[in-house]
């Protein structure tokens, strides 16, 4: 356990050292947040079909999307990808820590800074646009659980993409593809309800739904009671499946490393 704690500490320190890079890396997510706020504000004002989200609901939902984009930032995966591509990963293999757990510890070390940024942006949004209506007790607990689960879930998606570096040198491409897919299937760009029926159900059952849609819908009260609990259960299910799936993939990937000769 001590080894993992040390890794977490180092990554927290790194995040502080590279705080400017860190802040600028968040700019893309932030601008997307601003753009979506502007688009939806106009859309919901002009919309005549009254069945969709209300503007305050959408604001809360987009804030969740922003949080999801901001946490588990760029550092862990770029470093991991670089070490794999350059063969330096061989040094990680001889350390007395498990690889996947070690990377997760690094993410946890940096995540608190990202959470602070999210709280700051959320605070500003609330100041400008007014406080959201918080869900009731049970839903609030489910929302919190969902937000906590978001961290391992996003880590696993990022980590699995990072493992792609065993097969391709082009990590930027993988990262872009990941961001595009997550943006669509998590509901971060547009709530899943707005998508065509078939696409919406594919997305809802995908692991990505847990990365915005689930916590977002619970926060704004569009998923309540048993339905909310079910969504969180699906989210948890995916965390477990991906955690062990990633371990399997890692085993295959390491074999790849030996084939390449590191």
């Amino acid at each position: 356990m001590r080894g993992y704690r040390a890794l977490a500490r180092i990554s927290a320190k790194n995040a502080l050292t590279y705080r400017l890079e860190f802040a600028f890396a968040l700019f893309g997510v932030l601008f997307q947040f601003v753009a979506l706020l502007a688009v939806w504000r106009v859309l919901l004002a002009d919309s005549t079909t009254g069945t969709g989200f209300t503007w305050p609901q959408m604001r809360g939902y987009l804030l969740v999307a922003f949080a999801s984009g901001a946490v588990v930032g760029l550092f862990a995966d770029f470093r991991m990808s670089f070490r794999i591509r350059s063969g330096l990963v061989a040094l990680d293999l001889i350390k007395p820590v498990r690889y996947q757990e070690a990377r997760f510890a690094e993410v946890l070390g940096g995540v608190w800074i990202e959470v602070l940024v999210v709280l700051l942006v959320g605070g500003v949004t609330v100041l400008v646009a007014g406080a959201p209506t918080w869900p009731g007790g049970a839903e609030l607990a489910l929302f919190t659980a969902s937000m906590v689960l978001l961290i391992p879930l996003k880590f696993l998606v990022v980590y699995l993409c990072g493992l792609a570096s065993f097969w391709t040198q082009n990590y930027v491409g993988v990262q872009w593809a990941r961001i595009a897919i997550v943006n669509l299937f998590s509901g971060a760009l547009v709530p899943l309800a707005y998508l065509p029926g078939w696409l919406a159900s594919v997305a809802a059952w995908s692991p990505f739904a847990g990365m915005t849609s689930t916590p977002g819908l619970i926060l704004i009260g569009r998923a309540t009671g048993a339905q909310a609990a079910f969504l969180v259960a699906v989210q948890l299910g995916w965390v477990v499946v991906l955690w062990f799936g990633a371990k399997l993939l890692w085993r295959t990937a390491v074999r790849q490393l030996t084939v390449n000769g590191g």
């Binding site: 688009v39 859309l43 002009d46 919309s47 005549t48 079909t49 969709g52 391709t168 082009n170 930027v172 491409g173 993988v174 872009w176 593809a177 961001i179 595009a180 897919i181 943006n183 669509l184 760009l189 547009v190 707005y194 998508l195 065509p196 696409l199």
Partner: peptide
């Protein structure tokens, strides 16, 4: 090809997003 696929994918997602939005208004 990874890069090519990624950039195309981004535009496809953009289009899906826009058509979802404009389906309402």
């Amino acid at each position: 090809w990874v890069m090519a696929a990624a950039t195309v994918l981004i535009q496809v997602v953009n289009l899906v997003f826009l058509s979802a939005v404009f389906a309402r208004i």
